[in-house]
Amino acid sequence: METDGQSPDDTPPTPKDAAAALTSIEETRSAVARVRTPLWYFVTLGAMTAPIGPLSTVAPSSLPGALAFLGVMVAWLLALGWLMSRVVYRMGVQGRMTWKQLVLVPTACGLAGIAAAVLKNQFEVEWAMSAFTVVLGLVIVGVGLVHNHRKSQ
């Protein structure tokens, strides 16, 4: 507990002071829990993610083409970092993710990515990775819609 500059010789906080501090902490925690990530963030992130697969299929296989695509990907990563910093700045906090958001959604997306890679590499289904990134972009938007709906209740 913060002592507001009290020295060790001063009187310790009273039970009333401690209770007030705990109440203040709970009010702050409750206010932060109600912070809603803006839907534009999820829509923008989904729109940024969806075209990655289709764009990778049209990237030239020559060294200059591969380097150009690498440059595009670096620019994409910089844009992603900027987008994430903007939403944290606008919200004033970095929201806490639930267990489902931290484990289940990325795991399901990872398994879908592995399945897409197997389809493409083992069974020569050329559109698999493109479809995966489009679906991933839609999942990101879907997570945003669910998140915003739950926070609005």
Score class of each variant (00 low, 15 high):
61 S>Q: 14
61 S>L: 09
61 S>D: 15
61 S>Y: 11
62 S>F: 13
63 L>R: 12
63 L>C: 02
63 L>P: 03
64 P>M: 12
65 G>D: 10
65 G>I: 06
65 G>R: 12
65 G>F: 10
66 A>V: 12
66 A>I: 10
67 L>S: 02
67 L>G: 01
67 L>P: 03
68 A>T: 07
68 A>D: 01
68 A>P: 01
69 F>N: 03
69 F>M: 04
69 F>K: 00
70 L>K: 02
70 L>V: 04
71 G>K: 08
71 G>C: 05
71 G>N: 06
71 G>T: 05
72 V>Y: 10
72 V>W: 09
73 M>R: 01
73 M>S: 04
73 M>L: 13
74 V>E: 05
74 V>P: 03
74 V>M: 08
74 V>R: 02
74 V>I: 15
75 A>P: 02
76 W>P: 00
76 W>G: 00
77 L>P: 00
77 L>D: 03
77 L>S: 05
77 L>N: 06
78 L>E: 00
78 L>R: 02
78 L>V: 07
79 A>S: 06
79 A>P: 03
81 G>E: 07
81 G>N: 13
81 G>Q: 10
81 G>S: 12
83 L>I: 08
83 L>Q: 05
83 L>D: 03
84 M>D: 09
84 M>I: 12
84 M>W: 04
84 M>E: 14
85 S>K: 05
85 S>W: 05
86 R>K: 08
86 R>F: 04
86 R>S: 02
86 R>W: 06
87 V>A: 02
87 V>Y: 04
88 V>C: 01
88 V>I: 11
89 Y>N: 06
89 Y>V: 03
90 R>N: 07
90 R>K: 11
91 M>T: 11
92 G>M: 09
92 G>H: 06
93 V>C: 04
93 V>S: 02
94 Q>F: 09
94 Q>V: 08
96 R>Y: 06
96 R>Q: 14
99 W>E: 05
99 W>K: 11
100 K>E: 09
100 K>R: 15
101 Q>E: 15
101 Q>I: 09
102 L>G: 13
103 V>R: 11
104 L>T: 14
104 L>Y: 08
104 L>E: 06
105 V>L: 07
105 V>W: 13
106 P>V: 08
108 A>P: 04
108 A>R: 02
108 A>Y: 04
109 C>H: 01
109 C>L: 15
109 C>S: 11
109 C>G: 04
110 G>C: 07
